[in-house]
Simulated scan of single mutants.
Amino acid sequence: MKDTITQRVSRIIAGNMHALVDMAENANPKAMQQQAIREIDNAVTEVRTELGKEKVELHAITKRIAEAKTDHAELLQQIETAVREERDDLAEAGIARQMDIEVQRGVLEEARSLSEADIKKYQGYVDAMLARKREIEEAFAQKEAAAKEVHGSGTAKAAVDRAENAYNRIMGGGAPVTPQRSDDEAALDELAELDRKSRIQSRLSALKSTMKRHD
């Protein structure tokens, strides 16, 4: 699944947007734009689904690590009590259990690092595809004023079919699918845009501060 998502995102980001827009001039620009946006929206939804699963997994791993730490600490107290009572047999059993916990914690810590890396990767995918979506919307908006309407239903349908086939070749996708986007998806897009604007302002402020120190 992860490899499939990576390949799909890569095709979307690497697709020749300018060629797509140029071909749309001889077809139906609106249809081409809508299909391009559908492809991105579907991919964003898919990635966000995997992102949610990964966050749930990370939560479970983190909880298990915390439990392991607590168990390890409690065993230490029990081992110390056994030593004071000169019960080396109990102390040894406690130490053996601690060693098992330490081995498991090592694996859990590694799993947590991998999960955190996947979350960061998936979030990067979402940000990159939303950026691509903005680029496509801006490119089509610039061409819209100069785009010619195709007259005649038969001619228009044929032109749209050619345009859609060309888009599929460029973006590497198959037949277009209907996106399943909810109000939550729209809200997530808005939050992502707000976060992006906030990061832009932070970067601008940092740049101004650096330039001021150098003046």
Rank of each mutant, 00 (worst) to 15 (best):
T178L: 12
M23N: 15
A66K: 07
D88K: 11
L90T: 10
N165P: 00
K197G: 05
V160K: 10
R199A: 10
V83A: 01
K121M: 15
M23V: 03
I200A: 07
R162A: 03
E46I: 13
L51I: 04
Q7N: 11
N28C: 09
D215G: 11
H214V: 00
N42G: 10
L51N: 07
I119L: 06
S205F: 11
T155C: 02
A128H: 04
Q78G: 09
I12K: 06
I12L: 15
G152S: 01
I136T: 00
R64Y: 09
E193M: 13
A93G: 05
E80I: 14
Y122I: 06
R181D: 08
L76C: 06
Q98L: 05
E80K: 05
L188R: 15
D100A: 02
Y125I: 08
E39V: 08
E102I: 08
Q123R: 15
T6N: 04
N42P: 01
T6K: 15
E193I: 14
V103I: 10
V107P: 01
T6I: 12
R112A: 15
E164Y: 07
M32N: 03
E25M: 10
Y167W: 12
K55I: 08
A19T: 13
V177S: 11
E138W: 13
E67I: 07
D89P: 05
A96L: 00
A68R: 02
T49N: 06
Q201N: 12
D71T: 06
K197H: 11
G173I: 01
Q201K: 06
E193R: 15
V47Q: 08
E80S: 13
N26M: 12
E39K: 06
R199E: 12
K143M: 07
N42D: 00
K63Y: 14
L76I: 14
G172V: 06
K2T: 04
R181A: 04
L194G: 03
L188Y: 15
Q77P: 00
R169N: 09
Y122N: 04
I79C: 05
M99V: 07
R132Y: 09
R97K: 10
E92D: 13
M211K: 03
P176K: 02
T45E: 12
N16Y: 03
